[in-house]
Amino acid sequence: MNKMMKTVRLFALTSILAGTSILPVSSVFAEETVTPTTVQTTENVNNSAHTPPPQPASTQVVHNPYGLEALWREGDIVAKSTLFILVLMSIGTWYIMVTKFIQQAKIKRQGKEAEAKFWDADSIDHAAEILNETSAYRFIAEKGIHSTKKHGGNLLERIDFNTWVTISIQRAIDKIQSHLSGGLAFLATVGSTAPFVGLFGTVWGIYHALTAIGISGQASIDKVAGPVGEALIMTAIGLAVAVPAVLGYNWLTRRNKAVLDNVRTFGSDLHTVLLSGEIKNTNDLK
């Protein structure tokens, strides 16, 4: 009996010791089991929360406070009037250069036409009719022919036939020359005055700079940059208007000289033909 009781006590003691040793281990396993679940849940929450995409950097348009736009927007009536005059000069310069170039090219084509057709005609009257009605060479030919038919009367009898025909042809040539030279005076005027108009705008801009310094009481760069920039822009525009005008004047004048040389040569040949008496023979046949 005693032996059995000892065995029971030993079993109970062993059970208690085993329970006390197993309980911390199970607690540890329980903590290890719970912790990953918590971390996994936190990760899922973080992943489920969508992070908004970064906003693109906003681009702010910065206006140049010292440019041409600022000059027109902030300039007074004097600055705007000066700029407007320079713009008109530039437009007029380019218009005259283009139109005169077209006019000179047209007269050159008319000269080639006269050289090819005029001198191969049967009579001087027919030769004039062959040319185009707007041709400068036909204008000269008609003036010369009419001069031979109008030579007469008490007053014209005092002028010899040669002089009368020469004067008529020369008048026609002078009229063509005047027509070709039209507009060149404007180019010369713009070329000589545009830099001074721009200089006036420069002086006016410097005056504004000095006024800004006097009002503010300090010569800071932000006070004088605008007016000085305005002055420099006016100078640049004045030069940009004057340089094409001067170059265009010289270029068109040189081309006019070449065109008029051909016109004068035609007039001289026409004068010789009219003095030969061929026109009188043609009139007699009629």
Rank of each mutant, 00 (worst) to 15 (best):
T14S: 15
N44I: 03
T42L: 15
S27E: 09
R73E: 10
A12V: 12
Q55G: 04
P53A: 05
V39G: 01
L13T: 05
F11E: 07
A70W: 00
I22E: 06
A79N: 03
E31P: 00
G67M: 01
L13F: 14
K80V: 03
T41S: 15
F29L: 13
I22C: 10
A12H: 12
L17H: 03
H63R: 10
A79V: 14
F29V: 07
T38R: 14
A57P: 03
P24G: 02
P53F: 03
V39A: 08
Q55L: 13
A12P: 02
P24M: 04
Q55K: 13
H63V: 04
V28P: 02
L71N: 00
V39K: 06
L17C: 11
V78K: 03
P24Y: 02
A79I: 12
S21T: 05
P53W: 03
G75D: 01
T42R: 13
A18W: 04
L13H: 07
V25H: 06
L71Q: 00
E31V: 09
L17G: 03
E74P: 01
F11S: 11
E74N: 14
T82C: 01
R9N: 07
A18D: 01
N46S: 08
N46M: 11
T42H: 13
H50P: 03
I77G: 02
Q60E: 08
P52N: 07
F84R: 00
T35E: 09
S15L: 15
P52C: 04
H50E: 10
E31Y: 10
V28L: 14
G19K: 05
Q60T: 09
Y66P: 00
A30W: 08
F29M: 11
S48R: 09
N64C: 05
V25S: 04
A49L: 15
E69Q: 12
V39H: 05
A79Y: 00
Q40H: 09
E31W: 09
E74Q: 11
T33F: 14
Q40V: 07
L83Q: 00
E69W: 13
E43S: 06
L71P: 00
T35Q: 10
G19H: 05
S58G: 06
A18N: 04
Q55C: 05
T82A: 01
L23V: 08
S58A: 11
V25E: 04
F11M: 13
W72S: 05
Q55D: 06
N44Y: 04
T51K: 10
T14K: 13
E43Q: 12
L13C: 06
P65V: 02
R9M: 09
S15H: 06
V25T: 03
A79R: 01
G75A: 06
F11C: 11
E74S: 10
S81C: 11
A79F: 05
Q40Y: 12
A70P: 00
P36Y: 08
S81A: 15
V39L: 14
H63L: 11
T7N: 13
N47V: 06
L17I: 12
G67R: 01
V34A: 14
A70H: 00
F84C: 02
E32C: 07
N44K: 11
V25I: 07
T41G: 14
P36L: 06
V45Q: 10
W72A: 05
